[in-house]
Amino acid sequence: MMSISNEGRSASVEGRILDAAADCVLAFGVDRVTLAEIARRATISRPTVYRRFPDTRSILAALLTARITRALDSVPSTGVGRVPLVERVVGVAQAIRWDDVVMSVLYQDPNLAMSYLSERLGTSQQMLLDTVAAEIRAAQDQGSVRSGDVRQLAVMCLLITQSTILAAHMVEAILPSDDLVAQLTLALNGYLAP
């Protein structure tokens, strides 16, 4: 699991708030995260937190976005084509799966998870879609991804990957981590192949 260290701490007020929220999620669980404790851990006042976020739910949503953005940034593209594209998508999925903060929020607050994952396309999902769509377009031009609307193909890749991340724990006895990665890779390659 990814850990939070002082080395990766943000100097910005918003970053300090998100770092403190991550600490609270890990220390207390999602249900017991309070704005007062976030402010205390970030060494700022509650009104300062309220000027940036209306409540803890919005802080947790911003925290998910930041962590997912970090996961995407941690797995750079290695080239153009279906194979590098699938490797990146699977790599980002793995980074998210092993991020203890993201998984804690998703598993401990089902209402937030459902809102974040199924009711609207949020900031991080739009960012992921834009990235995958651009890589799909380049791979189509190169000939290694089938023709089709790049946004639609990217959405299906997101849905396949997102459901794999969410169900990974449930099927771990059948699909241990390495096998899950192999099967997700096969699924995405098969879906995108010309």
Rank of each mutant, 00 (worst) to 15 (best):
S74W: 03
V75K: 05
V75S: 08
V75P: 01
V75F: 04
P76C: 03
S77N: 09
S77M: 10
T78Q: 15
T78C: 06
G79V: 10
G79M: 12
G79I: 13
V80L: 04
V80A: 06
R82C: 10
R82F: 05
P84V: 03
L85A: 04
L85E: 06
R88S: 06
V89F: 02
V90Q: 02
G91P: 04
A93L: 01
Q94H: 06
A95P: 01
I96S: 00
R97Q: 10
D100T: 13
D100L: 14
V101L: 13
V101E: 10
V102E: 09
V102D: 07
M103W: 03
S104Q: 09
S104R: 12
V105G: 02
V105Q: 07
V105Y: 05
L106I: 14
Y107G: 11
Y107K: 11
Q108V: 06
Q108K: 03
Q108N: 02
D109H: 04
D109S: 15
D109E: 12
D109T: 07
P110N: 09
P110Q: 13
N111E: 15
N111H: 11
L112C: 03
A113G: 08
M114W: 04
E119F: 06
L121T: 13
T123I: 07
T123D: 04
S124A: 15
S124K: 01
S124F: 06
M127C: 04
L128A: 11
L128W: 08
L129K: 02
D130T: 11
D130N: 12
T131C: 08
T131V: 08
T131D: 14
V132E: 06
V132I: 15
A133C: 02
I136T: 00
R137L: 13
A139G: 01
Q140L: 08
Q140D: 08
Q140E: 07
D141Q: 13
D141V: 03
D141F: 01
G143H: 09
V145K: 02
V145S: 08
V145N: 05
V145M: 07
V145A: 10
S147R: 11
S147H: 05
S147T: 11
G148F: 11
G148Y: 12
D149L: 07
D149K: 05
V150L: 02
R151Y: 01
R151W: 02
Q152D: 13
Q152R: 13
Q152K: 12
L153C: 03
L153G: 00
A154M: 06
A154S: 14
V155I: 15
M156C: 09
M156E: 06
C157G: 02
L158H: 09
L158R: 04
L159M: 12
L159Q: 12
I160F: 14
T161V: 12
T161G: 11
Q162V: 05
S163N: 15
T164C: 15
L166G: 02
L166I: 08
L166P: 00
A167L: 10
A168G: 14
A168S: 15
H169R: 15
H169P: 01
H169G: 15
M170Y: 11
V171S: 09
V171N: 07
V171K: 05
A173L: 14
A173M: 14
I174K: 08
I174E: 14
L175H: 08
L175P: 01
P176A: 13
P176E: 13
